[in-house]
Design a protein around this nucleic acid. Sequence first.
DNA 1: CTTGACATTCCCACGATGGTAAGGTTTACG
DNA 2: CGTAAACCTTACCATCGTGGGAATGTCAAG
Lengths: 159, 159
Amino acid sequence: MNIGDAAKASGVSAKMIRYYEQIGLIPAAARTDAGYRAYHQRDIQRLQFIRRARDLGFAVAEIGELLGLWDDQSRQSADVKRLAEQHIAELDRRIADMRQMAASLRVLIDACAGDDRPDCPILNQLQQAQDEAPLMPETGQGQCLSATSGCHAGKKRQP
Amino acid sequence: MNIGDAAKASGVSAKMIRYYEQIGLIPAAARTDAGYRAYHQRDIQRLQFIRRARDLGFAVAEIGELLGLWDDQSRQSADVKRLAEQHIAELDRRIADMRQMAASLRVLIDACAGDDRPDCPILNQLQQAQDEAPLMPETGQGQCLSATSGCHAGKKRQP
DNA sequence: CTTGACATTCCCACGATGGTAAGGTTTACG
DNA sequence: CGTAAACCTTACCATCGTGGGAATGTCAAG
């Protein structure tokens, strides 16, 4: 089974398969006389594992840990669960960040006439920090628009 | 005002200020005799604009468009609003993707004993595609775990 | 005058993925 | 058998936004 077939069978592109091998996520594949990588059912399974973990948003480093546990017959399911919970916590954090952004932006959008005149609360808001948060909806949490209040969680936008 | 002060005043790191200049997001700063970049209130305002837009999750390219509209006194607020709506739509899409991932993972986590035994539904699920979706909660939507059903929206994880 | 805090440019790195180019191999068809 | 298509290989570059560091130059305070 060549890399192209392995790619089709696993849903991981040939490019990525080589990359995963390079970074050590998968062991170096066997080679044919011509130097072609040869894959077997076992390898396909590992690639599928990787792709499903990617689909769940696990980073490659986390997948490495999952694979380690997968390979470890004496693992404790608690270890796997802990990893997954860490990951879901990270997902939740990012979701919260983005919802915050979306909420702030929604307020501005709703305040914008969207006609042929130049006046625009969106630009106004971006232009100058307001002292407090006058445009915020009453959702309890601050909306992270002001430059004050040190709420610059925006750092890890696509971490 | 040197770049360090501009950085402090705007909340944009000196590194990023130079980068924004390099990619043309801000005009090349004036220079002192020694070659130091010199910033004025006007420039600070532009940098603050950029930082706030970043905090709202706008990509640098989008910020470029926003700045163009900001500079254009004859702009139509509809154009700004359209940009913002495109961006919020993108945010919503990413949020939905991540919520999907989190939901799928939550199901697996809840099914995992998390004790000292090796059996783990999380690894089992990653290991082999199930034909149908037996573990799914009844939330109506499919949970995008199966390798079948072509639901690999996972591609644009951090786009 | 020295020292430390700045500034400059240039290069490298990340993470995960895609593209492309130059060259070798295998396969299918006439 | 010959040739062309379809594959494989490595190697390099790009993305996007950000940080780190080196080598070197400048400014301000002691």
